[in-house]
Amino acid sequence: MNVQRIINRVCGQFLITNIKTSVFSIRLKHTKNDLENHQTKIMGRGLPEKKPLPGVKSIILVASGKGGVGKTTTAVNLACAMKVIKPEKEIGLLDADVFGPSVPLMMNISGEPMLNDDHLIEPLLNYGVKCMSMGLLVSGENAVVWRGLMVMQALDRLTRHVAWGPLDCLVVDTPPGTGDTHLSLAQNLPIDGAIVVTTPQSAALQVTKRGVNMFEKLKVPIIGLVENMSHAMCPKCGTKNFIFGNETKKTADEMGLEIIESFEVDSNMSECINSGKPAIYALPDSIHAEKYRQLANKVFKYIANKDNKQAKAKEQ
């Protein structure tokens, strides 16, 4: 006998009709804002406490809504540029893309990391940057086929079970989209800011908006947009050809964001990626290398300004 028949026997069909009507009336009294506030409170109950990584002063995320826009290239060259312009600073690079790690290729690192006396994974070092990636823990020929919980456990290993410190800044290369990885990082770590990478195509810009909205909901400050493949230069006359469109500035204005750096199409970048030598080292005199140095300076300035604001807030 189902539940409806039992209720009908005990209460009678008339009473059931009245109950249904009352419930419907109550629901009508709740506005959309009431429901959203209620959901926010429920979600807030189970959120973990944000704990800093031992010895890591600042954490910067590099993200993109859409894949294939040069996000990892940006993260790799940003980390290396930060080390180049300020050699005294300790810089780290975390590849948080569990399913498609490509930092080992771009940073020319390989081999299984070692454990130290504290049973923490020692990150591999190249170009003066401390690196860690799932690609170092899993054979390149094997596919990572995991469910959400296993991904979260892997992220915990890559963050809290790695001997990162001392670091002045940890650059985190995140996977495309707006998934579990971003949510887990934002809820567990004190993120200082995020750089969102895009290309001028309408499809990329549309997904970029979703990424920006995600960070706003997670209360992660957005440093700005990085535009890749903005245009191609004609080798003969030097004319700019906007082969993928020119809508990034409009989209940035709509979102109230700044394009902090814009990169043109350059075939030499593919060679840098394949050779495992970032453009900041392979092409130090190129326009790309100069722009990556400018981007690194802007990130350092952003971190310094945020540190100053936090220091003044503590004094008050």
Rank of each mutant, 00 (worst) to 15 (best):
R160H: 14
V171H: 03
P176N: 13
V172D: 07
E112Y: 02
G128K: 01
D173M: 10
G148K: 04
E88K: 13
L155Y: 04
M132W: 01
L137T: 00
Y127K: 11
G100L: 15
M150G: 06
G148Q: 06
G165T: 10
M134L: 05
G111V: 05
D180G: 07
E90Y: 05
M134Q: 01
T181I: 13
G165I: 11
C131V: 15
L185Y: 02
V171E: 02
N126Q: 13
V103D: 00
D156H: 14
R147M: 12
L149I: 12
I121E: 03
L120Y: 13
N108K: 13
C169D: 01
D168E: 08
L94F: 05
I91L: 10
C169V: 15
P123S: 06
L125S: 04
G128C: 06
H161P: 09
L149G: 08
M152F: 00
C169Q: 06
C131L: 11
R160P: 08
C131D: 09
M114H: 05
I91W: 06
D156G: 15
E141C: 10
W146M: 02
L170Q: 01
Y127G: 00
A143Y: 00
P166S: 06
N126W: 15
D118R: 06
A143K: 13
N142P: 05
D168T: 11
P175H: 08
M114Q: 03
C169G: 08
G179T: 03
M114D: 05
V151H: 12
M132G: 07
L93F: 08
N142D: 05
P113C: 00
G177Y: 10
L158V: 07
Y127A: 10
D173R: 09
K89Y: 15
L115Y: 09
V162C: 07
V103I: 14
R160K: 14
S102L: 12
M106F: 15
P176V: 13
L149M: 14
G165R: 10
E88P: 00
S184Y: 03
G140L: 11
P175F: 06
N116Q: 09
E90C: 03
L183T: 04
L149R: 14
G92D: 02
P104L: 09
V138Y: 02
N108T: 12
G177V: 09
A96W: 04
D118Q: 14
P87F: 13
L149Y: 13
P176K: 12
P101V: 07
C131S: 12
G148N: 10
V98E: 05
N126K: 09
D156F: 11
D168A: 11
N108V: 11
K89C: 12
V151G: 11
V151D: 07
R157T: 14
L183Q: 05
L137K: 00
L93Y: 04
F99A: 10
P176C: 12
N116E: 10
N126Y: 14
L183A: 02
G100A: 14
Y127F: 15
G111M: 12
P166H: 04
L183G: 06
A163R: 08
T181V: 15
R147Y: 12
L136F: 01
C169Y: 13
H119I: 06
L149S: 13
G140T: 11
V171K: 04
